[in-house]
Design a protein around this nucleic acid. Structure first.
Length: 922
DNA sequence: GTAAATGCCTAA
DNA sequence: TAAGTTAGGCATTTAC
């Protein structure tokens, strides 16, 4: 005889939602168990609710609510109303006030009831009425996405599910388990025949192939390619289907059978999913019965268009389109699958061009096989991108740390995560949170934000410097918030507070001190920071490579979250917005960096090196054996200062005089002196030393950096803001400039740099596109097509190309796409001469060599070498006229430029009359 | 002719 | 249910 048995299950929480039952809503928790089963757990008994705030008598307001809802026929939809004590969201308050907590029977009724209540006279505000029911459940129970839950319940067997086990839970709690479950990954990609060279549309063009990739394998196979026509002699992972409908049915069958946790594809949200969903509609309308159930609740495949974006969600699973993820995480010039695979995986995409497709499809032999291989490779690549690049690690960690369901982390921004953390902590402190602002409120806030100033950027002392210490503040904005108790909940509006009870920011805003009341944001940040320290501690301890990776993702997630709160506080669409808080953070930051500069230059000024230790001048009596180091701040941006170390005579040190270890001693001494003057937990850190640094402009510099590490010093060249890191310059510029920077920074050899530029210029001057295809690729520029063509006010080269492309092929690139172009020879504006590189290659069109030399190559390099007195005439030196001979002679004398520089006791200046130019005889 | 506006992309 | 923030350099087009 069957008996009710209690089951215990551990599972990692992948998704959550709810469904309605007569007895009330039931939460569903989806996950993968420790023994590899997919599971769905039902939790009954959680009630939807929200808060109502009023300054009137609660009885009166309750009565008005009853009347109003009777009037609109909704009174039966309210389950109960309680009086509770809560704090209002904004501002320091000594005591709570009574508010109404309204419970409803159905989460779906909350919006209409809320709107009714909001209209009632005397109702000041409605709080937390726009929080998804499943989010409310997770927050109130402190359950986090992708963490492990332990559920106790009984097995049930309702219809309408596509997972291994369904449990009705009596009890559920979070457990400590950390190791990730073995998730199942599924990637897919469809092929359709283009129509007369045009993009296929789902109302006309059938799907002819679907390729799928699996990890772990499905029935022993890594990939399966479905093909919508009967054909023999294909590889054994190819399944021939009678027709398109059969193919789609088989696709969904495999999908359900495999039961993946993660569903992925390259641009799958933008193309494949909508296409499949539309084809299913078309076919089913003409008499087919394709069951497109893919959800763990057997919900059919669906998508929603919000603006230009397509949202896809599949209950119980995570949908990850790798294209937007890769866009976000990697700065590349192009995001075609071909380019991304090449750059990030080192793998080639196979290709059958659009105009060859029909021919390949109609073949039954080699050509069809080639087409199949191409299709197969695309889903393989999508899967490889997500697995090899470990794209999900970061999102899993963010979900675990913030609590947000992983799908919302993957497809949403920072707002979701910050709000989940704030809702949790506000709840614990019995404070309510406002609803999302309406468009009018956000517009007002955006207007207010015009007064919000950001970080300070110190004027760089332009030129080349040696022995520059790089000091930066560890998590500057979070530590400012903690140190000054800046919070929505501590800000005081009125003057009824003693000066000793409040902290005033440079903006004049006032916040109560933590001993009066500690802010909620500082509390959250402290918790996150403590977790991060603990995570880093465990990273040092572990020997397990996988655990290390997980911990590293966790600490990175914590860092991202720590740094999200400042931006959120000044975000116009945030539930919690505080211009006072945001401007105080940046104002304190600005004051801090200029104070830091002063301490280093004026108060410290000189550091004394003696027997492996660094001292301040007034800490010791200086003897002749001591070495003195003069300090000056040559640059700084928001949270960093670059400190130049020089001899007391004002010249650069030689190698023998000043080592990396000396730098470190000085750097650490300076950092500790500054830190000692700051409130906890603000901390200035010694990060690295630049043996040489070239400061070009604000936010533009290059360093030859040495960083201390466990295996001693490691060196690298780090470039910020210069053309080598910008994607709107051609590759040739980056390559050339990188080489120039290397010669200048590592060798101090200007001559070599000049020579390299001359050679590159000459190569371009004698450019022959036909015979030098390689350099042609290096001349391609890209720019992002960032808004609808009609909203551009000026003409732009990439728009020219977009228009040409559209005219020629009918294909209109989507907003967000990066458009490649070259500038062709001719007269008039550049914008008229921008052209699609493919078209140029096909038609053998001449490029505007002069444009490339005068506009792409010389200006960036002149900005750098101009510091040493090198001018355009020198760089664009025509070898036939002058010959390299003079120059080569000059360069011999000055190979070791840096030594000469020391002798002259003079630093290079930009275009200055006392620049290095006299060292060379160009 | 030059100054202002526009657009892009980066640093933090 | 779309979207953290400001500071800043630079090239090019457009307005004057």
């Amino acid at each position: 005889m069957a008996q009710t048995s209690t089951e215990d299950r551990h599972f990692q929480l992948i998704d959550a939602d709810y469904f309605r039952q007569d007895s009330g809503p039931v939460i569903r928790l989806f996950g993968r168990t420790d023994d590899g089963k997919s599971i769905c757990c039902h939790v009954a008994g959680f009630e939807p609710y929200f808060y109502v705030n009023t300054d009137d008598d609660l009885e009166v307001i309750s009565e008005r609510i009853r009347e109003k809802l009777n009037l609109t026929n909704k009174s039966g939809k309210i389950k109960k109303v309680e009086v509770v004590q809560r704090f209002e969201p904004i501002g320091y308050q000594k005591t709570m006030k009574p508010m109404l907590k309204v419970f409803t029977h159905d989460p779906g009724n909350v919006p209409e009831i809320r709107d009714d209540i909001a209209e009632i006279a005397g109702v000041k505000a409605v709080y937390e009425a726009d929080i998804l029911f499943r989010t409310r459940y997770l927050i109130d129970n402190d359950f986090h996405g992708m963490r492990w839950l332990k559920g106790k319940g009984k097995k049930i067997n309702p219809s309408g599910y596509a997972c291994d086990e369904i449990l009705e839970l009596f009890e559920v709690k979070e457990t400590e388990r950390k190791a990730p479950a073995d998730l199942k990954y599924f990637a897919f990609d469809i092929e359709c025949l283009p129509e007369d060279g045009n993009m296929p549309t789902p109302d006309r063009s059938p799907i002819i192939m679907i390729s799928m990739s699996f990890n772990p394998v499905f029935e022993g196979k890594d990939t399966i390619v479905l093909i919508a026509k009967p054909v023999d002699g294909m590889d054994n992972d190819v399944e021939a289907c009678a027709d398109e409908a059969t193919l789609l049915k088989r696709f969904f069958e495999i999908f359900r059978k495999y039961d993946p946790d993660v569903v992925t594809g390259y641009n799958s949200n933008g193309f494949d999913v909508p296409y499949i969903a539309e084809r299913v509609k078309v076919l089913n309308n003409s008499g087919h019965d394709i069951d497109s159930a893919v959800g763990r609740d057997r919900r059919p495949l669906s998508y929603r268009k919000i603006g230009t974006q397509t949202m896809v969600s599949i209950p119980g699973r995570v949908v990850v389109d790798t294209l937007p993820i890769i866009r976000q995480q990697f700065s590349l010039k192009r995001y075609t699958l071909r380019n991304v695979s090449q750059e990030l995986l080192g793998r080639e995409k196979l290709d059958v061009s659009a105009d060859e497709m029909e021919e390949h499809w109609n073949d039954d032999g080699e050509k069809l096989r080639k087409f199949v291989d191409y299709a197969r490779r695309d889903s393989e690549l999508a899967l490889e991108l997500i697995l090899e690049l470990k794209l999900l690690d970061k999102y899993i960690a963010l979900s675990q740390v913030s609590g947000t369901i992983i799908q919302d982390v993957v497809s949403g921004g920072q707002t979701n995560m910050v709000e989940q953390l704030l809702l949790t902590e506000f709840g614990k402190h019995k404070r309510v949170i406002p609803s999302k602002p309406d468009d009018k409120t956000s517009a007002e806030r955006r207007h207010l934000n015009e007064s919000l100033k950001g970080g300070a950027v110190l004027e760089p002392k332009k030129g080349l410097h040696e022995n520059v210490l790089v000091l930066d503040y560890k998590s500057l904005y979070p530590t400012i918030i903690m140190a000054h108790n800046l919070c929505y909940t501590t800000v005081v509006e009125d003057g009824n507070y003693n000066d000793e009870d409040v902290i005033s920011s440079p903006t004049g805003a006032r916040f109560v001190k933590p001993d009066i009341q500690k802010g909620i944001v500082p509390t959250v940040l402290e918790k996150l920071m403590a977790q991060r320290s603990e995570t880093k501690r465990r990273m040092k301890k572990t020997t397990d490579e996988n655990e290390y990776r997980v911990l590293d993702a966790t600490q990175l997630a914590l860092k991202i979250l720590l740094n999200s709160f400042y931006g959120y506080s000044g975000y116009a669409r945030a539930r919690l917005y505080s211009l006072e808080m945001a401007s105080s953070v940046t104002a304190i930051g600005r004051e801090n960096i200029s104070r830091t500069e002063k301490i280093i230059c004026d108060e410290i000024g000189t550091v004394v090196l003696r027997e492996g230790q660094a001292f301040l001048k007034d800490e010791v009596l200086i003897t002749p054996k001591d070495r003195l180091v003069d300090l000056s701040v040559v640059y700084g941006d928001t949270d960093s200062v670059f400190v130049h170390c020089m001899s007391p005579e004002g010249r650069e040190f030689t190698e023998e005089e000043f080592s990396l270890e000396d730098s470190e001693l000085v750097g650490k001494k300076v950092a500790s002196v500054v830190t000692a003057s700051l409130p906890d937990p603000m901390e200035l850190e010694f990060e690295a030393v630049a043996k040489r640094v070239l400061l070009v402009a604000k936010k533009r510099y290059a360093q030859w950096l040495f960083e201390p590490g466990p295996q001693g010093w490691t060196d690298k060249i780090k470039v910020k803001g210069l053309e080598t890191v910008r994607r709107d310059w051609c590759e040739l510029t980056s390559k050339m400039l990188n080489q120039v920077l290397e010669y200048v920074l590592k060798e101090g050899n200007i001559s070599k740099a000049v020579e390299h530029v001359r050679q590159t210029v000459n190569r371009v001057r004698n450019l022959d596109v036909q015979h030098d295809a390689e350099i042609m690729d290096d001349l391609i520029l890209t720019k992002s097509f960032s808004k609808s063509a009609s909203s551009y006010k000026n003409r732009q080269p990439h728009l020219t190309v977009v228009e040409k492309l559209k005219r020629r092929t009918g294909v209109h690139p989507p907003i967000g796409e990066r458009i490649p172009f070259v500038i062709t020879a001719g007269k008039g504006l550049f914008v008229d001469r921008a052209e699609d590189p493919e078209y140029v290659k096909e038609h053998n069109i001449q490029l505007d060599v002069d444009y490339y030399i005068q506009k792409q190559m010389l200006p960036p390099v002149e900005r750098i070498l101009g510091v040493f007195g090198v001018d355009v005439a020198t760089l664009d030196h025509d070898s036939k006229q002058k010959g390299l001979f003079d120059f080569t002679n000059a360069s011999k004398e000055s190979d070791n430029f840096i030594t000469k520089n020391h002798e002259r006791e003079e630093k290079p200046q930009v275009n200055g009359s006392n620049s290095q130019s006299s060292l060379f005889d160009f």
